[in-house]
Amino acid sequence: MRVNGIASPLPEDPRTLLSDHLRHQLRLTGTHVGCEHGVCGCCTVLLDGKPVRSCLLLAVQAADHDVTTIEGLAPDTAALHPIQQAFHEAHALQCGFCTPGFVLAVKGLLDEHPDPTDEQIQEGISGNLCRCTGYANIRKAVRLAAAAR
């Protein structure tokens, strides 16, 4: 498995979830766990560039694949990724717990639809729950990010 471009060993215990492996073995704690049953989208990572729920995968299922977590989106000290920047400008986060999942879901959305319609935006973020923002500013952030491309 390659995580954020770096070859990375698989866990010893084959039942380890990808989300737990990332968080607790690799200490990439930006991937959050809100439900562990595939509904909230907090644990979204990119698997070969496509958004997936890391709580629904075993780490071993990601062997031979490229995993991108939120930590891999913008290299540390450099500027934020345009999607992250758009979330900031649109006030699209409050507690920030859902945010990494949303940002990566939006990355997947914009890779597929660089200039999304309102419907495609709705569709693209409709697999992620946010309990704080009420979504309006997240929609706004997606439009900002698309415009910034």
Partner: peptide, 17 residues
């Protein structure tokens, strides 16, 4: 603009878990 966003956007927030 919010001053707490940067670390949260990068996945560098620190939640208890």
């Amino acid at each position: 603009e919010r001053r707490e966003d940067d670390r949260l956007l990068r996945g560098a927030g620190r939640f208890t878990d």
